[in-house]
């Protein structure tokens, strides 16, 4: 187990460096940040030079990257050009996005696995066909369309849940955005669970469990579902990335001031520190989630642990 964790950690290092460097390069191709700072006015050459020096803008790109990452590890994300520290921006933005993602993730896991299990156990039945059709429809409609339609129907017309998430964020106000954000992933999870459950229900060890005279409930939960969840957990790990990306869309629809909001502002204002900081954190969260899933995977599947 220890070796396995170590190997996973080591493999993550080049991915982390590669990914963050890629983002760094792209963002710094945004154009000249100093010009952007001054907008339409022509900058004073002396002040411009000073700013360039302050932000290491005269160094070659790779050196800028190294210096930036060095600061990052000291939890210094630099400041925006308007002087606000990116760290404080992050502290404002992240809780909202994390709350939204957590709500969505919970909905995705509970309902996705639940529907998938019901569907996979009764393949070809009414419930199965409804789940199949519904998930297909949900996957086909882009999240932002689902978002506007549900916001209008549930939030405005029927008034069941708040249409926008105000400040402070309450669980109730995050429910509708959470459902919207979770919808596509939920459909994928349901379909994947259905496939693996249906596949595994024909497995020899499930037959053995039945032949042992175990109650159906125990066969399904301890043997069938336990094994079927292994690929589902893998999917959930990757899907966190999609959820965080989707959060950008959902936040905009429901007017939540989270990562999406600040990131978008950073992009519009060509504020490279903000953009790199936010995206780097997102990537770190994504990679960490993947690592966590890897460990969970090893816990779930002893054959990986002892490989």
């Amino acid at each position: 187990m220890g070796r396995y964790v170590l190997r996973r950690l080591l493999q993550m290092i080049p991915v982390f460096i590669g990914t963050t460097f890629l983002i760094f390069v792209m963002v710094h191709a945004l154009g000249d940040p100093v010009n952007a700072l001054f907008g339409d006015k022509a900058p004073d050459p002396a002040i411009a030079a000073q700013i360039r020096a302050q932000y290491n803008l005269n160094d070659p790109l790779w050196l800028q990257y190294v210096k930036y990452m060095g600061n990052l590890f000291r939890w210094n994300f630099g400041t925006t050009f308007s002087g606000q520290s990116v760290t404080s921006l992050l502290a404002t933005a992240y809780p909202a996005t994390l709350k939204l993602t957590a709500v969505a993730f919970t909905i995705e896991v509970v309902f996705g696995i639940g529907f998938g299990l019901i569907s996979g156990l009764r393949r070809g039945g009414m419930a199965d066909n409804s789940v199949l059709i519904l998930t297909l429809v949900v996957i086909s409609i882009p999240t932002f369309v689902t978002g506007y339609v549900l916001q209008y129907l549930i939030g405005v017309k029927w008034g069941i849940l708040p249409a926008t998430a105000g400040d402070p964020l309450t669980l109730q106000s995050l429910l509708l955005p959470g459902i919207v954000l979770a919808s596509v992933s939920l459909a994928y999870v349901a379909r994947l669970t259905r496939t693996t459950v249906a596949e595994n229900s024909k497995a020899d060890y499930v037959r053995t469990a039945t032949a042992k005279g175990l109650p159906r409930r125990r066969v399904v939960i301890n043997h069938l579902l336990r094994n079927s969840l292994i690929p589902v957990v893998t999917f959930l790990g990757t899907d966190l990335g999609a959820l965080m990306g989707g959060a950008l869309v959902t936040e905009r629809i429901f007017n939540i001031h989270g990562v999406g909001f600040y990131l978008y502002q950073g992009i519009v204002r060509q504020n490279s520190n903000t953009v790199v900081g936010f995206v780097t954190i997102l990537v770190i969260v994504f990679l960490a989630a993947n690592l966590l899933v890897d460990l969970l995977y090893a816990v779930l599947d002893p054959r990986i642990r002892y490989a």
Partner: peptide
Amino acid sequence: LSSLNPVH
């Protein structure tokens, strides 16, 4: 091998 549950 296949008749025993691999994860228990």
